[in-house]
Design a protein around this nucleic acid. Structure first.
Length: 570
DNA sequence: GCCGTTTTCGGCCCGACTGTTTTCAGTCG
């Protein structure tokens, strides 16, 4: 039973209770608990075993009892009772924009509709418009929402969202009424996937900004348009929410629209406790209602006795408690990175020669790089045999004679199904360092996968484990691994764990990274570049590291060339 | 349902926009 299973159980209960019309604060308690468990770095089963469930904030006796029952028996009587009243499939309707629990209740109770396809049919045959609280427009909006849902299936990669966002921001900057502009929402927090774009503008003329926004050439549809808030759909089906506030409120609004929701709820609670009221316009004295801050995020956090909390930390995962004690980490930054140790060249399945990679890396300002081509048995990726390694080594030696940037000879050595490495010890000695990774046979169970990796990590030549869980967004689930065991082994064997920066990997994830650090693991951040255009993905790896609370000292490739050289014994 | 040196009961973040309604509930972030 994984944390995500327990979280979705609680979320299902919350949604079913919402539809039943249960009190908002009760269902919110279920939601908060679900999110907390999802973000929990510890395995929930372990927590239950140690009888420490109620130590988790937001979990009291009632929820603890339910979670224990679910984990020990695999089911929950309370949920089954709820499902007798409302089939679980009804919850799918909540995914449709413009449909919330109240409307779902009406739709289900009056027409007995239990699926999106049934609702679609009901809209097309004009059965919805006669329900209480619905009209003709409701049918149109529901059908549009269903069409969007069928097409997009939710969230987009951070990389793609960043590109779309950049274009729109530069378009908006052309408008002279835009005094200040910032990305907000999950993109500012650099989450690994993004739902929609949030952009905040400061302007003395909101109408002009909104009118300009809806002229954006890539606009497909206006979802709503008001004085301070407009939502549009782009031709690539991206939803963008733009908010406009006055300059004096820009900081408060940025704080608010950056989220996360969980962070904001906690921050507002803290404000209340300190005798303030916080909304997107500013921080107010609760009694006198006088505004005391709002221009910048810094002044708001400061008045709440907090340091500036970097957006990547704003998930209510302990950043507020540690901020109050002034023990927040000094997060790693992109400029701390001195080199990239996970790059593929033409020798295996990369697109570019080592020479052109060197040139591109010098332009970034790196002091060193490592070329880690695939190993011999990975034929699909042109894995290198011993002769090819020697040839590559000679080329690198020649380059190092003239280049200021140091090139290391590395490998991304395949971990075979039995946990042994794809090269013998003699071959492994040829490399300056050895990265290992799984590229075949993904369908092993948790025990087998975990043993496969931990066995490989015990090999003395190994420097780092590449993309530890092997997940690919939208393509491949992470390997079923006991992460605690992986982290323990990493510490015991001095194996660095990679944060792979490739946009559809971001592996380790932020949550795993945070937990691993707590257990004493060290990391490296690599791009897994297969072309010089990929070198810039380092920023996403660093973003994930920041979301995992990492500092410069936690990451191998923040070290100077001299330190790395002595580390590799070169 | 959770939580607590103001409280074991009564709070719990807060506002914009839409559509259906005739002053506001529902949805969303």
């Amino acid at each position: 039973m994984k944390n995500s299973d327990v979280a979705s159980l609680l979320l299902n209960i919350a949604n079913l209770l919402d539809i039943k019309g249960e009190k908002f604060f009760k269902t919110r308690a279920y939601r908060i608990a679900a999110q907390t468990i999802l973000d929990l770095s510890e395995d929930i089963e372990e927590v239950v075993k140690k009888k420490r469930l109620q130590e988790i904030p937001g979990i009291g006796s009632a929820l603890a009892k339910k979670i224990e029952e679910y984990i020990s028996t695999g089911k929950l009587l309370y949920l089954e009772t709820l499902q007798n009243e409302i089939p679980i499939s009804v919850l799918d309707l909540l995914d449709i924009p413009s449909i919330g629990p109240k409307k779902v209740a009406t739709i289900y109770q009056t027409l007995n509709i239990t699926s999106i396809s049934e609702l679609k049919k009901a809209c097309q045959t004009q059965k919805i418009r006669h329900l209480d609280g619905f009209g003709e427009l409701s049918e149109i909006n529901i059908l549009r929402g269903i069409a969007l849902l069928e097409k997009t299936q939710g969230r987009t990669l951070l990389h793609y969202a960043s590109l779309v966002n950049k274009k729109l921001i530069s378009y908006l900057k052309n408008n002279s009424y835009v005094a200040q502009i910032s990305t907000a929402g999950s993109l500012r927090r650099k989450k690994e996937t993004i739902g929609d774009l949030d952009i905040l503008v400061a302007s003395s003329n909101p109408d002009a900004v909104m009118d300009y926004l809806v002229l954006y050439p890539q606009l497909k549809h206006i979802l709503m348009k008001g004085k301070t808030k407009t939502s549009i759909l782009l031709s690539n089906d991206f939803q963008v929410d733009v908010r406009v506030v006055k300059e004096e409120s820009f900081g408060a609004a940025l704080q608010y629209f950056t989220g996360s929701k969980e962070h904001n709820v906690a921050i507002r609670g803290l404000a209340l406790k300190n005798g303030y009221k916080l909304n997107e316009y500013g921080l107010y004295n609760k009694k006198t209602e006088k505004k005391i801050a709002g221009k910048s995020e810094e002044e708001i956090y400061h008045l709440l006795h907090l340091p500036f909390i970097p957006p990547e930390l704003r998930e209510n995962r302990g950043e507020i408690e540690q901020g109050l004690q002034d023990t927040l980490p000094t997060l790693i930054t992109l400029s701390d990175i001195q080199g990239d140790l996970h790059i593929h060249s033409k020798y295996s399945d990369g697109h570019d020669s080592i020479k052109s990679i060197v040139k591109a890396a010098e332009a970034i300002g790196y002091a060193y790089i490592g070329i880690t081509d695939h190993s011999q048995s990975l034929h699909v990726a042109n894995g290198l045999n011993k002769d090819q390694i020697i040839k590559k080594s000679e080329e690198i030696n020649a380059i190092n004679k003239t280049s200021k940037l140091k090139v290391f000879l590395g490998t991304e050595c395949d971990i075979k199904a039995d946990g042994n490495l794809d090269y013998d010890d003699e071959c492994l000695q040829l490399f300056d360092y050895v990265g290992i990774g799984i590229h075949t046979k993904f369908k092993m169970n948790e025990r087998e996968s975990t043993e496969r990796i931990t066995h490989a990590m015990t090999h003395p030549s190994v420097t780092f484990l590449a993309h530890p869980t092997c997940r690919l967004f939208g393509n491949r689930e992470p390997l079923p691994l006991n992460m605690e065991t992986i982290f323990e082994t990493a510490v015991e064997t001095n194996t660095y764990l990679e944060i792979n920066s490739f946009p559809d990997r971001l592996d380790l994830s932020d949550v795993h990274t945070k937990r691993a650090k707590e257990m004493g693991v060290s990391f490296c951040i690599g791009t897994d570049s297969h072309s010089i255009d990929h070198l810039e993905f380092m920023k996403y790896g660093v973003a994930t590291a920041r979301r995992g609370w990492l500092e410069k000292e936690d990451v191998l490739n923040t070290n100077s060339l001299e330190t790395i050289k002595s580390f590799f014994n070169k």
